[in-house]
Design a protein around this nucleic acid. Structure first.
Lengths: 353, 353
DNA sequence: AAACTTTCCGTGAACGAGCACGGAAATTGC
DNA sequence: GCAATTTCCGTGCTCGTTCACGGAAAGTTT
């Protein structure tokens, strides 16, 4: 024991009657130790409550570990930008631990490019991986592969039904849908809640996972329970053809003149902000998700009433840390599923956000 | 440079044409270096962008640093408990860096006990200190002392007019008062906002700082600007005699039967929850501060409409980290004043908090 | 039982920084 | 100009791990 009462590898070695080399081998179980001495060492570690000194360890390790993050190519102001920022920030803060981070980008509309990114990532032998499962099946395949290779991976924002992930950081999606319904209908009587418009984004349903699905069920369940009479209408817009959005909405509005309640479950409520502004309805309530700058702007100018926001940046940040802790210290995190808290943003609290 | 491209002290020494001992001396400016070589070393450090390796440094340093926190004695459920929790959590997370934390408790109603705690703290030679300035003058004296000793200190929750603090973590108090007024009057017309009751806590004004003062000015300013006709009444209750609270409020209510808007600026709105419950008023709005469990309970049972909450725990946590970074790596934090974000809690979003 | 394998384990040189020690160089005193 | 200080600086051990190397011990083959 040193003067701070810390137990060192030498203490363990002495206690177990072996050398520090042997202790090191069992700590990192890389074999070449007889069953008998391994047992003695483990016993000594247990009794002395030995924990390797992270700093000595980092210092002595030659190899730098790499944490990879698979991300769709994004442009400024998009949801993914925040994930990316959190990843960078996390990478910075673990860089002193000899852990480096690397992003692998792919085209979110092209599975082949996803495969390419995966191949490139695996080739660079990451020690940990961060995933946001855009392509459901492809991601599941990757998960299997990572498990075979013994590489821990964590889901951020959305998780899949998959037994082997190391951790998950995100908001409770289903609950966020319920919360959305509750905020939308707050202080309203059933007769005031007759029609709700859900604006959705058209996408190729074949391959991609639908991250808004859970949110929609939460929303629908709440509405069923509390406002069973309410009709939920859907409009589909195409984000790739922004110029077509007004027409789509015009057409819809022709049939449903009274759009008093409007909801979007993804991060792009700002796409319809202009149209809403041009077609005001007194007392309309509009709820969207995620604190993208464009969305905040829509709240400030009173087009969107409420945004339900998660802290994506914190999520990836924490994911990086969890992985680095695990890689470096074999430390499992206390919680596998980390549901992080949601913010309700209105124009009243926005300026303090 | 090692294989990871990191610049080491040896690189600097070579470049400056001195030995690593000399470089080390200038890095920690502990003298015994000629002006000439010091200059060469500084230049080399600058050019090579040398940053000492934290881990090698921690490993080599014998001394364990101590971060102290001055806190009033608290009981379960109190505001201070959260500060304490954040401090512990922060302490845990820096303990691997050979940094230990220690709490020094005092009686918040007894300046002598504060002095005793300060003396004890200084005697144990802390490398950094965390303060919540309950006693204003005493804290300012301490601040002077700490500056003389070259010990960095950070304010949490409340800060004083004092040039020398290292950092501050808290919510913008003045703004929080404005926010309170805004939420209280949201969607109301001036004629609906005639009388507001502010419940305050009696205290010895002589020595203690009044942490709610700024909040009150924010509140008052907002009301002046938007509802100049509104009368703001004050009731004073004594937290040390909870049994007297009902009488005090009864007496007040006799003169002001229509208590439709009630506000408290400290964390103890729960003290008047029972009375409010027993004296319901239709459409009453009650706003308090801080997410103490008892306050949350009052929100759940619909007695308190809104709580404005800061993340005290995060504040102390970050304070510990900022200090440890500074102590260990001479790293100044980017922001001296860190205004952290406020949450608006209603019974609608509480369950997701 | 000698010659080979295989298994197992101890040794010692890094890693990068901190700091005590002692001695060289510069300065001062007389 | 020599001794005594003072200033300045290099050397080398240390912190707790990691890991390559090489050799002892045990097991196998002929």
């Amino acid at each position: 024991m040193d003067k701070n009462g810390k137990v060192t590898i030498i203490d363990v070695a002495r206690k177990a009657g072996v050398s520090k080399g042997t202790v090191d081998r069992v700590v990192h179980n890389r074999g070449e130790v007889s069953r008998k001495s391994a047992e003695k060492v483990r016993k000594a570690i247990e009794e002395l409550q030995y924990r390797p000194n992270l700093y000595a360890s980092v210092l002595a390790t030659r190899k730098a570990h790499m944490i990879a993050c698979l991300l769709p190519i994004f442009s400024k102001g998009e949801f993914w930008e925040k994930m990316h920022a959190g990843f960078l920030r996390g990478g910075e803060s673990v860089s002193t631990l000899n852990v480096v981070t690397q992003v692998f980008l792919f085209d979110q509309y092209d599975p082949d490019s996803f495969h390419a990114a995966v191949a490139e990532m695996l080739a660079s032998e990451p020690s940990g991986v961060i995933l946001q499962p855009l392509f459901k099946n492809e991601t599941l395949e990757l998960a299997v592969r990572l498990r075979e290779l013994g590489i821990p991976y964590v889901y951020v924002d959305t998780k899949l039904e998959d037994p082997g992930y190391f951790a998950y950081y995100g908001m409770p999606k289903y609950k966020s849908g319920r919360l959305c319904a509750r905020m939308l209908t707050e202080r309203l009587d059933p007769e005031e809640v007759r029609d709700v418009t859900v604006v959705r984004i058209t996408r190729d349903k074949s391959r991609r996972s639908d991250p808004t699905m859970e949110r929609r069920s939460g929303f629908n369940d709440f509405m069923d329970e509390h406002f069973p009479e309410c009709r939920i209408h859907q409009v589909f817009i195409d984000p790739n053809k922004p110029e077509s959005i007004p027409d789509t909405l015009d057409a819809f509005a022709a049939d449903h003149p009274d759009m008093k309640m409007v909801v979007m479950f993804n991060s792009r409520i700002h796409l319809i902000a202009d149209w809403l502004k041009a077609h005001p309805v007194k007392g309309r309530r509009v709820i969207g998700f995620d604190n993208m700058e464009k969305n905040l702007e829509a709240v400030r100018s009173d087009i969107v009433s409420i945004l339900i926001a998660e802290h994506v940046e914190d999520q990836t940040f924490k994911a990086v840390h969890a992985l680095s802790d695990y890689i470096l210290m074999h430390k499992s995190i206390p919680m596998r599923d980390n549901y992080m808290h949601m913010d309700i943003l209105t124009k009243y609290n926005l300026e303090y956000y």
